[in-house]
Simulated scan of single mutants.
Amino acid sequence: MTEVVVAINALKKTFGRQGVLRGVDWQLKKGQVVGLLGRNGAGKSTLLECMLGLRESDGGAVTLFGEPVHALSEASRARIGYVPQTADLFDWLTPVQMFDYFSALYPRWNDARVEGLMLRWGFHGEARNKPIGRLSGGEKQRLSIIRALAHEPELLVLDEPVASLDPVGRRDFLRELVGEVIDRDTTVVFSTHILSDLERVALDVAFLKDGRIGLQAPLDELLDGARRVTGTGAALDALCLEGEIRRERHADGAVSVVARLSPAELDSLRGMAAVRVEALNLEDLFVEVTR
Score class of each variant (00 low, 15 high):
residue 173 F to L: 01
residue 68 P to T: 14
residue 69 V to F: 00
residue 288 E to G: 00
residue 272 M to I: 11
residue 4 V to E: 14
residue 43 G to Y: 02
residue 65 F to D: 06
residue 5 V to W: 00
residue 197 D to R: 11
residue 114 V to A: 00
residue 36 L to I: 12
residue 291 R to S: 13
residue 291 R to Q: 14
residue 269 L to R: 01
residue 156 L to D: 07
residue 163 A to T: 08
residue 104 A to E: 13
residue 245 I to R: 04
residue 201 V to M: 10
residue 32 Q to N: 10
residue 42 A to N: 09
residue 16 G to Y: 08
residue 256 S to E: 03
residue 130 K to M: 10
residue 86 T to E: 15
residue 45 S to V: 04
residue 212 R to Q: 14
residue 13 K to T: 11
residue 213 I to F: 05
residue 85 Q to G: 15
residue 59 G to P: 04
residue 6 V to P: 00
residue 64 L to S: 08
residue 152 E to D: 13
residue 20 V to H: 04
residue 62 V to Q: 07
residue 286 F to Q: 02
residue 144 S to I: 07
residue 109 W to S: 04
residue 128 R to T: 00
residue 244 E to N: 08
residue 276 R to I: 07
residue 30 K to I: 01
residue 181 V to F: 03
residue 214 G to D: 11
residue 104 A to N: 10
residue 12 K to L: 12
residue 265 E to Q: 15
residue 15 F to C: 01
residue 147 R to M: 00
residue 155 L to E: 04
residue 248 E to N: 11
residue 278 E to F: 09
residue 108 R to K: 14
residue 50 C to V: 07
residue 176 E to Y: 03
residue 54 L to Y: 02
residue 82 Y to E: 11
residue 155 L to F: 03
residue 228 R to V: 14
residue 84 P to A: 04
residue 262 S to H: 03
residue 94 T to F: 02
residue 214 G to C: 09
residue 158 L to D: 03
residue 291 R to W: 07
residue 24 V to L: 13
residue 199 E to L: 04
residue 3 E to T: 06
residue 52 L to G: 09
residue 55 R to E: 12
residue 215 L to C: 03
residue 135 L to M: 14
residue 236 L to Q: 00
residue 12 K to M: 15
residue 136 S to D: 08
residue 253 G to V: 09
residue 220 D to P: 08
residue 86 T to D: 15
